[in-house]
Amino acid sequence: MVTFSAPAPPPNSKTLLKEMATGTFEGTYSVIKVTTDEAGIATGTTFTATKVTGVYQITVSVEGIAAPVIFELTSIDVPNSLNDLEAIPGDGQVTLNWEPPVNTRGRPVIGYIVYQLDAAYNKTRLTPTMLGPDVRTYVIKDLANDKPYMFAVSAVNIVGEGVTTYVLPVTPRTSLPIPEAPTITQVFWRDKELRIFWVGHNSEGKPEITGFKLYRQLYSLQHPLDNPASPWQLIATLPATQDSYFDADVTAGVTYSYYITAINSAGEGYPSNVLFEEAGSK
């Protein structure tokens, strides 16, 4: 259903018929046409639309003369993926931290669902009741040390459950002198390069970060974390002072995934979140 409201034009005046009105879209529709009398468009009038979002024009009749009314329509849908998701290993546990989606598709987030994944990406829900909209962290306990685990989180709004965000395998350990996982903050296309930016996290009681290792693979919708047709490849080993990398060895129209690890004297740390972006043509 689409509902909208617009100012009623006064008698003998057609000017207000071109003012903008607002509305919301739900469902799939096919026809655009509404006819009213000289009282103008009544609040709550419903009609059908041919596209999900954009600017629409309908026809109304004032004093027997047909005239257009233009208004803007906003789509609603399930939320996009989370803005960020990281997994921090501990002794027999993993802590998940996240930020809400940047785009909630027209309706606010009402909660989050946490999943554990097996090797085939089958999801098992870990939160029988949906977590509240203000929750930003979740601890999974009673895990075996030295065994890798995979987790995912999705946001929910009134329309339904949104796009799932995955995190790379993480391994709980009794002693963790290696670095915490860095955070990739953004990946975007500019000047014929995919540009990757990240933040490293030095932790109290652990040796200082001495460098980073950046990995890349071809993105796969079916296997977002482990594409069997394109194994992860180390593309750069970088100094600890570096917080960005411009990848020019890419093909236009191809989407690439990236993650990064930190290095210290104890070894290579845990993988960051995964972000992906398509290489443009200019």
Score class of each variant (00 low, 15 high):
45 T>K: 04
23 G>F: 00
52 V>F: 08
28 T>E: 13
47 F>P: 00
26 E>V: 15
30 S>E: 11
49 A>D: 00
55 V>N: 12
23 G>N: 02
26 E>F: 14
53 T>C: 05
27 G>R: 08
48 T>A: 02
35 T>F: 05
51 K>M: 10
43 T>N: 15
28 T>S: 14
41 I>R: 01
36 T>L: 03
25 F>Q: 06
23 G>M: 03
38 E>Q: 15
34 V>L: 12
25 F>Y: 10
28 T>L: 13
28 T>Q: 13
38 E>G: 12
43 T>C: 07
37 D>P: 06
31 V>P: 01
25 F>V: 10
34 V>G: 04
33 K>I: 03
33 K>Y: 07
41 I>K: 00
44 G>A: 03
32 I>R: 07
29 Y>V: 05
55 V>R: 11
27 G>I: 06
47 F>L: 07
34 V>D: 04
31 V>R: 10
34 V>W: 02
23 G>C: 05
28 T>D: 13
38 E>V: 12
35 T>V: 09
35 T>D: 06
49 A>H: 04
45 T>L: 07
24 T>S: 11
33 K>G: 08
55 V>G: 04
40 G>N: 09
37 D>Y: 11
43 T>P: 13
25 F>L: 12
50 T>G: 11
56 Y>E: 02
54 G>W: 02
42 A>Q: 12
34 V>H: 03
38 E>I: 14
35 T>A: 06
55 V>T: 15
24 T>F: 07
39 A>W: 13
40 G>S: 10
51 K>E: 11
41 I>A: 01
41 I>V: 15
36 T>I: 05
49 A>V: 12
47 F>Y: 04
56 Y>R: 00
36 T>M: 02
32 I>D: 11
49 A>W: 00
49 A>E: 00
30 S>N: 13
30 S>G: 12
42 A>V: 12
32 I>N: 10
47 F>A: 02
54 G>Y: 04
33 K>T: 10
24 T>Y: 07
55 V>Q: 13
49 A>Y: 03
43 T>D: 15
24 T>H: 05
34 V>E: 01
51 K>S: 12
27 G>W: 05
26 E>W: 10
26 E>G: 12
42 A>S: 11
41 I>D: 00
